[in-house]
Amino acid sequence: MAGGSIPHFQNDAGHTVVEIGVKEFKCVGANPPFDHPHVYLDMGDDSELVCPYCSTLYRYNNSLQANETRPANCLYVVQAA
């Protein structure tokens, strides 16, 4: 995602699939303090990717914006230090 910030996603609720509107992102697992290392993931030409830490299946959905997820509330907002 050149020229923009990389969205971060979390899966506190343990959803089987989280649909997102980007193919490059970071997965944090659950919200801190229960997060895993914030890992950069890139789907490339694929439309699905499994996080190697938390096993969340992320699925690209081009009808969603970069800050939207389905189910809702899986966007993680990075807090300034």
Rank of each mutant, 00 (worst) to 15 (best):
E19L: 04
N11W: 06
V28N: 02
C74E: 03
V39F: 04
R70C: 08
V77C: 09
T69F: 05
V28F: 01
C27L: 04
Y53G: 02
Q79F: 01
H8M: 09
T56W: 04
I6C: 11
P33D: 12
I20R: 02
D46V: 08
P52G: 05
P7V: 06
P7D: 04
I6M: 13
E48I: 09
D42E: 13
N61P: 03
V18G: 01
N61T: 04
N73R: 14
H36G: 08
D12W: 04
N61L: 06
C51F: 08
N11Y: 06
P52W: 10
D35C: 14
D46K: 15
S47Y: 13
K26C: 01
E24N: 10
A13E: 11
Y76C: 00
A80G: 13
L75A: 10
V77A: 13
Y53F: 15
Y53T: 03
Y58C: 06
L64C: 11
I6S: 04
E68P: 07
L41I: 05
Q10W: 01
Y40L: 14
D45W: 03
Q65N: 10
C27A: 09
D12K: 05
V18M: 01
D42L: 05
M43D: 01
L75F: 11
G4W: 05
L57D: 08
V28Y: 03
P7Y: 02
D42H: 15
S47T: 14
C54P: 09
I20N: 01
T16A: 14
S47Q: 14
Q79L: 13
V50C: 09
M1Q: 11
A30E: 12
P71L: 09
Y53V: 00
P37L: 09
A80K: 15
A80N: 13
D46S: 15
L57W: 03
N67E: 09
H8V: 11
E19W: 01
F9S: 03
G21N: 07
A66G: 06
S5P: 00
Y76M: 03
V77W: 10
G29A: 05
T69A: 12
V39P: 00
S5N: 10
